[in-house]
Computed example of a mutant assay.
Amino acid sequence: MTDFLMPSLGADMEAGTLVEWLVKPGDAVKRGDVVAVVETAKGAIEIEIFHDGTIGELVAAPGSTVPVGGVLARLGDGSVTAVPAARPAAAPEPARASPAPEPRRPPPAGTRARATPAARQRAASLGVALDGLQRTGVDGAICLADLSQAAKPAPRRGGFDPKAMRAAIAAAMARSKREIPHYYLSLSVDVTATLGWLDRTNAGRAPPDRLLPAVLLLRATALALAGTPELNGFWEDGAFRPGDGVHVGWAVALRGGGLVAPAIRNADRLGLDELMAALRDVVGRARGGGLRGSELTDPTVTVTSLGDRGAESVLPIITPPQVATIGFGRVMERPWVVDGAVLPRRIVTVTLAGDHRATDGHRGGLLLARIEALLQTPEVP
């Protein structure tokens, strides 16, 4: 018997609201399967399971608010003592395992297809008719999983609440500045040659296959962190714990306000084209409401880039329990000394916010120096 608990999807998350189950009792699941959609201050998040097994009981009912660590479901038979999950009043008992239902026919013309609220919302955003879709949800309802083959993924707002998002950010950042002794370092880097290389590389590519400047920043940061592991990890229980890989959380500004920083896992092992695809993917899903829970809990460091409309530099705040955040300002054309001559060059300012409990300025300086060197050699595999 194993309990499936509500995960913590942020430093100050206290509870989440179960929107929808994507499994039913009797279903076999394996680690990494998406089994539920949970609403948090960051929007609707797809939750993966962390154990192999068979769903024995769906403890929390859709619509219930469950505290972090509360029981969502149980794998296997029997019962155990665990943190109770909040349920709506008079919630019906979850369905027990039963033989798989026979395929359901579409409802008669003129009737409204049975679907979960989240599935109906996604179908509307996709422009997909519910009639005729397979129905694998509880009691024959159409659920999100049934829409996965109907069309390509599209934005799912998930009940995004800008005020709740802002409150969550405020709580996390207040905690960070209250508990973490920040130190800051910055370095201005000449990226004229790098951006010239990027223009030449993109010249023979179709627009969808072109690389963006952001991917060069991401690659340089990931490789530099692989060589400076003291800044890639977490401060927990009074000590530093290194990350199990370089999982870069890329800060994404949301159109409705606020931001999230989903992880690009093992970013140091990916080539530029792979990184570009991963970056486009997480940015699209972050703004469309299709992130997974692990993508919000896995980052070992956070990177924020202000892009071509931002300020010259940024002094970022560390996301606990991480120990570093790297910020990139807008690329600026400045007078720069090259071989004794003053020339116009394109310059970007890189800033490191480090946790002084884990590292000091010497290690931070080495990281920035590595980023500078890597930014100037984008053609190196």
Score class of each variant (00 low, 15 high):
residue 14 E to R: 04
residue 18 L to G: 04
residue 39 E to P: 08
residue 58 L to F: 04
residue 65 T to W: 03
residue 72 L to P: 05
residue 85 A to S: 13
residue 89 A to H: 11
residue 97 A to L: 06
residue 99 P to N: 13
residue 108 P to I: 09
residue 110 G to K: 09
residue 111 T to I: 07
residue 123 A to M: 14
residue 127 G to N: 05
residue 127 G to Y: 08
residue 128 V to H: 10
residue 129 A to K: 11
residue 134 Q to H: 15
residue 136 T to E: 14
residue 150 A to G: 02
residue 154 A to E: 14
residue 155 P to D: 14
residue 155 P to A: 15
residue 163 K to W: 08
residue 169 I to Y: 06
residue 189 V to W: 00
residue 203 A to C: 08
residue 210 R to M: 10
residue 223 L to C: 04
residue 224 A to D: 04
residue 227 G to H: 10
residue 229 P to W: 02
residue 234 F to D: 06
residue 238 G to Y: 15
residue 239 A to N: 12
residue 241 R to S: 08
residue 249 G to P: 09
residue 258 G to Q: 05
residue 267 A to P: 10
residue 279 L to N: 11
residue 279 L to E: 06
residue 288 G to S: 01
residue 290 G to A: 06
residue 301 V to D: 08
residue 304 T to V: 14
residue 311 A to V: 09
residue 313 S to E: 09
residue 316 P to R: 04
residue 318 I to N: 02
residue 318 I to K: 04
residue 319 T to H: 02
residue 319 T to R: 10
residue 320 P to L: 05
residue 324 A to L: 11
residue 325 T to M: 13
residue 331 V to H: 01
residue 332 M to Q: 06
residue 334 R to F: 03
residue 335 P to S: 12
residue 349 T to H: 01
residue 355 D to R: 13
residue 374 L to N: 07
residue 376 Q to W: 12
